[in-house]
């Protein structure tokens, strides 16, 4: 399957919509002592409008910060989370960094490529799913890991990953392992990254099973950090010697 044609973005950065985005941009810029620090969040902002960073999006960022489009393009192309072509409503990333790869990430990525008929960095024709292999996403104790729109799907198998993308294509509600109650879209995720809260921080579990492995064992065996009173007393004793 091919990547969809680049859509026309002229309406997004003009008129009322532009005025709204300029307000957002002002708020982002106001967070920083120097305006240019706002560039990464501004790129997330334009990505939240179009699903990718278009040339028009780059021009918008450049104008807000008084930069040239070349300066903004140099930054936009450096970071892998900024997409220069539209990705799916659900962007699926499979970790294939060695730990995950060995635990089954390679098999999961191969299974999804075949199941979706996609190669790396391609999008289904219906625009629903794009697929990418990822580097380490800091969830190695839950390997193999799949991320969808940057939410954790832990301990995956080829079967669970195929069911996951099927459910996404069918529009079923999908719940990340350690994330909010329901997955948001790629554009919504980008808006959160730009710094606009979606009010869902309290949803989902506080920790996954692997995160709790050590604490559970410590509780079971009655292990804890030293009692501060005891160490303070010992220090006093040594001090008076």
């Amino acid at each position: 399957m091919s990547t969809p044609q680049t859509p026309d973005s002229s309406g997004i950065f003009s008129g009322e919509n532009r005025a709204r985005l300029e307000m957002d941009a002002k708020e982002i810029i106001s967070r920083y002592p120097k305006p240019r620090s706002a560039l990464l969040p501004l790129l997330h902002l334009v990505q939240s409008e179009e699903g990718y960073v278009s040339n028009e999006g780059i021009a918008f960022c450049a104008e807000q910060l008084g930069l040239t489009t070349a300066e903004v393009t140099a930054v936009a192309t450096f970071y892998t989370m900024y997409k220069r072509r539209p990705v799916g409503e659900y962007h699926v990333g499979v970790c294939t960094n060695p730990l995950c790869a060995v635990m089954g990430g390679d098999e999961i990525f191969a299974a999804l490529k075949e199941h979706l008929g996609l190669e790396n960095d391609e999008t289904t024709e219906d625009g629903k799913i794009s697929l990418e292999h990822l580097e380490c996403n800091a969830a190695c104790d839950f390997a193999p890991v799949v991320m969808v729109n940057w939410e954790f799907f832990d301990n995956q198998t080829p079967e669970s990953a195929k069911k996951l993308v099927d459910d996404l294509r069918l529009g079923k509600d999908v719940k990340p392992t350690r994330g909010p109650d329901r997955l948001c879209t790629w554009k919504q995720a980008s808006r959160v990254l730009a710094g606009f809260d979606d009010g869902r921080a309290a949803e989902g579990p506080q920790a996954g099973e692997a995160s709790l492995a050590g604490l559970r064992l410590a509780r079971e065996r009655g292990w804890q950090a030293p009692d501060p009173a005891a160490t303070a007393a010992k220090a006093d004793e040594e001090g008076t010697k």
Binding site: F152, V192, L193, A201
Partner: peptide
């Protein structure tokens, strides 16, 4: 950036 819920929790 690739950890959306972590970012939500931290901002919260």
């Amino acid at each position: 950036g690739e950890v959306l819920h972590v970012i939500r929790r931290l901002r919260h």
